[in-house]
């Protein structure tokens, strides 16, 4: 679905860009790009849908080499959700907003799909998008992207500025989409969101890809995360911290499994097995 081969990109005047980044994302994967500020996470997102063209190397997405394809064409197969929804919204009602993207994608059953999206996200189509709360505006932006049913979704910090419920609502929709086969590439600073939703982690630092593996393993690699100025999510950190004493919890990713492992260990203790 998405392949980067030895991609270099540099900005003319500011920003360090990225150097020699290579990875491949297969259909149905859910990957998260993590790294310090200025590591090049958003640059990779923009390279993936042709908003930026690589200085060298190739970016292939949905069969297109982005160096030769127009972003407007790539956009038919690649949905992009920006951190700031206000840059995406430009219509006078929520319904028009959702229909807007579909018009360019050549979707015939636009009306029908728009109604589906409104129902799915619990939005009022007659409302004015700029009068909604930040979370609702992000939902409208997401709905307008999802309405086109893209094969690849790129999410540039989709949960920034959202409260827990709004964040969960948006991420649950994206997870359902991923379960139905959509490939997802997400940038996030929130390690809890990354751990809860993504399956694969790509760690960037100083414009270079320094780690690529399952989120589960990356969260336990304190040295790798430290290189990217990151702290692991709390649950794996706790699991690693107490894993030396309790058996079977070093791969725990949620509180329930830690408690269960601890209970088992304590029960073993009381029976004199530990």
């Amino acid at each position: 679905m998405l392949r980067l081969d030895g991609v270099h990109f540099s900005y003319n005047t500011e920003g360090q860009g990225i150097q020699d980044v290579s990875f491949e994302l297969k259909s149905g994967e859910f990957a998260a790009i993590i790294g310090e500020n200025g590591a090049g996470k958003s640059t990779i997102c923009r390279l993936c849908n042709g908003l930026l063209k690589p200085s060298s190397g190739t970016v292939t997405v949905a069969g297109f080499d982005t160096s030769n394809a127009k972003t407007s064409r790539i956009a038919r197969d690649v949905g992009f959700l920006f951190q700031n929804p206000d840059r995406q919204l430009c219509q006078s009602t929520v319904r028009e907003e959702i229909m807007f993207g579909m018009g360019f994608a050549g979707v015939s059953e636009a009306e029908e799909r728009c109604s589906e999206m409104l129902e799915l996200f619990g939005l009022d189509g007659k409302k004015e998008p700029f009068g909604l709360s930040r979370g609702e505006r992000q939902l409208v932006a997401l709905a307008s992207v999802l309405a086109r049913e893209p094969g690849l979704m790129i999410l540039d910090e989709p949960t920034t500025g959202l409260d827990y419920m709004e964040c969960t609502r948006i991420m649950d929709h994206i997870t359902r989409l991923n379960e139905n086969g959509t490939t997802v590439l997400m940038v996030s600073h929130d390690m809890e969101v990354v751990l809860d939703y993504a399956h694969r982690g790509l760690v960037l630092s100083g414009g270079r890809l320094i780690g690529d593996g399952s989120v589960h393993d990356i969260m336990r690699d304190a040295a790798l995360l430290s290189k990217a100025s990151l702290l692991p999510a709390q649950i794996p950190a706790l699991a690693v911290a107490i894993g030396g004493r309790f058996i079977d919890i070093d791969r725990a990713d949620d509180m329930a499994s830690i408690v269960e492992a601890e209970a088992n260990a304590l029960a073993g203790d009381s029976r004199g097995e530990f």
């Binding site: 849908n49 972003t71 407007s72 992009f80 840059r87 993207g101 360019f104």
Partner: peptide, 18 residues
């Protein structure tokens, strides 16, 4: 710069400004 950002976001939605 804000206008450039808005145009970039619309391009990513499939609008062809070219």
């Amino acid at each position: 710069s804000e206008m450039a950002g808005i145009m970039e976001a619309q391009t990513a939605r499939g609008v062809d400004f070219e």
